[in-house]
């Protein structure tokens, strides 16, 4: 356990020393700043236009505009979280194996599983708090400007965290198998696959095509990240907007149906399975 925590701490120190944390925080500040500035500007322009017509912005319109802005912001936050999960973890094992630093570490009195779980914990403790901070900054920043706070924001954040956790764990598995570059590419292609699968599924729902819907469902089991986001987006929309979306159908970026317990259980078991597989592969590998 001591060694496991040592490796986790070491991951943090490396991220700090390599200025990863600094760079991410600075860019995130810029992103959040721009987002809130844009939100404010957009809302003002709506209100100005309504005033030019001699009216007030209708409550429903303001609500929909605010909720859509929050959805967009959270969509990007989810993307950034996924990006960080993949790219901060892609080199976790392969980077150390390629550079040879592992050769001095692994003969030490440390079990291989302790090393890998330490890496997992280290990256997880970087990525997940980052995502929490980012989403809270967006949600409460937007609330301060628009007055709108989604009905159940913490459910949404929870599902986004699960998505990032899954991607991070899958990346760790990739990193025990492939080089850093290959891991990054493979993971992003898988992420893209989940995303495309989600769109195909939405189109299927819109056109009533069973085959497309099945493709969408299948991809959501293989790469759950997109479906988890859709599940999260349900909790970010006011009831009225959800009904509109539900009628309109086929918005490829948001969902209207909460995720079932069965699906969440699948994602949990899947993530655990990927982690166990990574431990098994790492244990058997020659360095």
């Amino acid at each position: 356990m001591r060694s496991l925590l040592l490796i986790a701490r070491f991951t943090w120190r490396e991220a700090l020393a390599r200025r990863l944390i600094l760079a991410v925080l600075l860019l995130t500040l810029v992103f959040v700043g721009l987002y809130l500035y844009g939100t404010d500007a957009l809302l003002r322009s709506f209100q100005r236009r309504a005033a030019e017509l001699g009216r007030e912005l209708p409550g429903q319109a303001q609500l929909f505009a605010s909720a859509t802005l929050v959805l967009m912001g959270m969509y990007i936050a989810n993307f950034l979280g996924s990006l960080l999960a993949v790219f901060s973890t892609a080199a976790a094992v392969s980077g150390e194996a390629d550079s040879g630093t592992l050769q001095a570490v692994l003969p030490k009195p440390i079990r291989r599983w302790e090393f890998l779980l330490g890496k997992w914990l280290g990256h997880l403790s970087l990525v997940l708090p980052y995502l929490v901070l980012l989403t809270l900054a967006l949600l409460y920043g937007a609330q301060a400007i628009t007055g709108y706070l989604p009905p159940q924001p913490f459910y949404a954040i929870g599902l986004m965290l699960l998505g990032a956790l899954f991607l991070l764990t899958l990346t760790l598995l990739g990193s025990t198998l492939f080089s850093t570059l290959t891991t990054g590419v493979v993971l992003f292609m898988l992420y893209g696959l989940g995303w495309a699968g989600g769109i195909v599924g939405s189109v299927g729902a819109l056109t009533g095509s069973k085959t497309l819907q099945q493709i969408g469902t299948l991809s959501s089991y293989v790469v759950p990240s997109d479906r988890l986001w859709r599940g999260a987006s349900v909790y970010l929309q006011p009831e009225a907007l959800r009904q509109v979306q539900d009628v309109a159908r086929g918005n490829p970026f948001v969902g209207t149906e909460p995720l079932g317990a069965g699906y969440l259980l699948w994602v949990g078991i899947y993530t655990l399975g990927v982690l166990l597989l990574a431990l098994w592969v790492f244990r058997r590998r020659d360095f």
Binding site: S3, L6, S99
Partner: peptide
């Protein structure tokens, strides 16, 4: 053990490096 391709975590100072490995030794 001194590996043949002695590549270490080069962002560390010499002392931090030895501390880290000493901690790994327990």
């Amino acid at each position: 053990f001194l590996p043949e391709l002695f590549r270490f975590h080069d962002w560390m100072t010499g002392r931090d490096f030895l501390r880290f490995h000493g901690q790994l030794y327990g």
